[in-house]
Design a protein around this nucleic acid. Structure first.
Lengths: 188, 188
DNA sequence: TTTATCATGTAAGTCGTTACATGATTGA
DNA sequence: TCAATCATGTAACGACTTACATGATAAA
């Protein structure tokens, strides 16, 4: 289960509660791998059953007690093994409702199809803005926490940059595609 | 359930068995929406329970009997309703193992990460070839079945063309991205 | 001779979402 | 005062995959 490795990857950096993991997922990994809280809680229990993480209860006065999970040596080994070996088959989901609608486009009228493309383009433009905002935010964080010399010299920041770049390029391409489709449809 | 609408969309063109639907899915819709046979059989039964399709048994001597499904008027209405309304939220899955690995790239060594990118690029190149082959095949089919005048003048062929174009542009962008990442990694 | 195709399905299990439950604190 | 956040989970359901089962024919 890939989600388990993602959790281990975060726990390798620091011990965390399920709730904190949920936050981290939605903030840093939302473009790449979505995970709901209840999923995270379940996988944490599964990981503990297999001895890849251990938990300890922490009492709190003002808030409910929390369960902090720490990666074990076995967990670190499992994570590193997974990470270093390129898999025979990469997990990539491909279920795209918009493309399905385009596929059945001839069952729509031309105007309906055009309407679909316009909506789609609007959405991508908003996604583009949201992505740029998120990117600037992480840039600020990096600048705050690192000296100028360190910037972009380590794998961590470079990988984050690559990730944003891919998301951005992907949206840009999709926009070009949709706009071109729209032009050709309207010429019809 | 979106899969049900996809099934209805095919049944609108002609009556089919579950097995035939499975073939059609893997041949024409594999880029867009994957569906396993057992899923298709189940959804066909669900559709029949709701009166959107009807089945009839057909006896065969040489082969096992088959169950042919036909769309009903209610089914056609349901499909057209779904198709004409752009949804508040498009279903798009985003769980990408490679990006997850890139995200945790700093937990790998630089060489391992480079190795990952090289594998990834290899795979995309193969996907590109496979896509071009599939495209030529459908082009041939279209030329066989249609006169020159009809070509690219109807929504059906145009939508198919759009679909391939998107897949092709997407692979191309991914390739550029990965190659650029590789260059920057190796400069490090 | 073995593999692929035709044709149907069941069963078990995994993965994922949504709803429910509790209850204090903090900010608008 | 209301919503949001912190913090933990359970329960139920829905979607999807994989393995199993059967058994004929035709092509490599």
């Amino acid at each position: 289960m890939i989600l388990q490795y993602a959790i281990l990857g975060f726990l390798l950096r620091s011990s965390l509660t399920g709730y904190q993991l949920g936050k981290i997922f939605s903030k840093s990994l939302n473009l790449v791998w979505v995970a709901s809280l209840s999923q995270i809680y379940r996988e944490l229990r599964a990981l503990e059953k297999h001895g890849l993480v251990i938990s300890r209860q922490e009492k709190q006065i003002d808030r409910p007690d929390k369960v902090v999970y720490t990666i074990t040596e076995a967990g670190e080994t499992a994570f590193r093994d997974w990470l270093k070996n390129y898999p025979e088959e990469l997990f990539t989901e491909k279920r795209d409702e918009f493309m399905l609608r385009v596929f059945f486009g001839s069952s729509m009228g031309k105007d309906e199809l055009i309407n679909h493309y316009k909506h789609f383009i609007e959405e991508r433009l908003e996604m583009k803005k949201a992505l740029e905002a998120a990117r600037e935010e992480t840039d600020l964080l990096v600048k705050k926490s690192k000296s100028d010399k360190d910037q972009m010299t380590n794998l961590d920041n470079l990988s984050t940059e690559f990730l944003y770049r891919r998301a951005s390029m992907s949206i840009e391409t999709t926009l070009h595609w949709a706009e071109q489709c729209l032009v050709e449809l309207e010429q019809l």
